[in-house]
């Protein structure tokens, strides 16, 4: 083997430098618009306005408003990721294994492609028109059933309302990721487990779920990061009345509140840490649970 490789190298001298030159634009772009900006922020988090090293910015994060913003963001992201994962999985299962008519699956997949991209400001408008104070569903519930959901404590511009709105792109995203994963379950595994005496529940608990676990976990964390970094929907829905971390950072960058760039860098560092940690955790858990895979 080594011999043939050496032979190849001798008989086919390559202009290596030219090849490397081809990836230079990409690398340069990645440095200028991904790596250096992010690094500068992280460095900035440890500097005072004069550029000296300090931990004061990190310490300054310890304010009730900021702590609560992180908490709310994490809670909304976790709730919408969990709900999206659960319902998305249910729908993916239904189209992949549910014995429903064949046309439902491509319809559902196409719709999911659209809905998972239908986010941002227009999504906020749609939910305002649906579940806002004058929204259609709100009005219908009041006029037909006499139930004013706002009187029962529902508020679209709140934790619950925002989570419900985020589900509109979280569920389809989950469907798109999980349907191929569920397709990967072989019919023979179910049959083999069944003939060995296992119930459907035992099959799911001992075989299907452990096999799907890495995909489930990965999708959950992707959904989490997806919601955690989201701002447009929340901002359009609530203005700056909802205290989540992206809106806080947005206001900080605009110079509306805090007006301390270095504190802003610390806020951003916190966000990178949270999404980075969840991705790191995913990679670690996946490598542990996939010992049985090549």
């Amino acid at each position: 083997m080594a011999e043939t490789a050496a032979e190849l190298a001798r008989t086919r001298p390559r202009p290596v430098s030219l090849t490397w030159l081809g990836v230079v634009p990409f690398m340069l772009f990645a440095l200028m618009f991904l790596i250096v900006p992010a690094t500068l922020l992280m460095i900035g988090a440890f500097q005072d306005p004069q550029g000296n090293f300090t931990l004061q910015n990190i310490a300054n994060l310890n304010q009730p408003t900021i702590i609560r913003a992180y908490q709310t963001s994490i809670a909304i992201s976790a709730a919408s990721a969990f709900g999206g994962a659960l319902l998305g999985f249910g729908l993916a299962y239904a189209v992949a294994l549910g014995h429903v008519p064949r046309w439902i699956r491509p319809t559902m997949m196409t719709f999911s492609g659209v809905a998972s991209n239908f986010a941002g400001v227009p999504l906020a408008f749609a939910f305002m028109a649906t579940l806002g104070r004058t929204g259609l569903v709100t009005a219908l519930l009041t006029s037909i059933f006499g139930i004013n959901i706002y009187r029962y404590g529902f508020n679209l511009l709140s934790f619950g309302g925002l989570t419900l709105t985020y589900l509109y792109f979280q569920i389809p995203l989950m469907i798109l990721i999980m349907t191929p994963a569920i397709d990967g379950l072989k019919r023979e595994w179910r049959e083999a487990s069944s003939i060995l005496g296992a119930s459907t529940w035992q099959y799911w608990r001992m075989i299907a779920f452990p096999i799907l676990w890495p995909s489930l976990l990965g999708s959950f964390l992707l959904l989490f990061a997806n919601a955690f970094g989201a701002i447009a929907t929340a901002y359009a829905l609530t203005g700056s009345s909802l205290n989540i971390i992206t809106i806080l950072l947005f206001a900080q960058i605009r110079g509306d509140v805090l007006h301390d760039p270095n504190l802003g860098y610390a806020l951003a560092l916190g966000m990178i840490l949270i999404t980075g940690l969840s991705n790191g955790a995913y990679i670690w858990l996946r490598s542990r649970s996939e010992r049985w895979m090549r």
């Binding site: 072989k186 049959e191 083999a192 003939i195 060995l196 452990p210």
Partner: peptide, 21 residues
């Protein structure tokens, strides 16, 4: 009877071993 009540052993063409075990 359902398959899991029949006490039958079966070997499949594509092995069908549980990959996670």
């Amino acid at each position: 009877l359902r398959p899991n009540q029949r006490n039958i052993g079966m070997v499949f063409q594509a092995y069908a071993l549980f990959p996670n075990m």
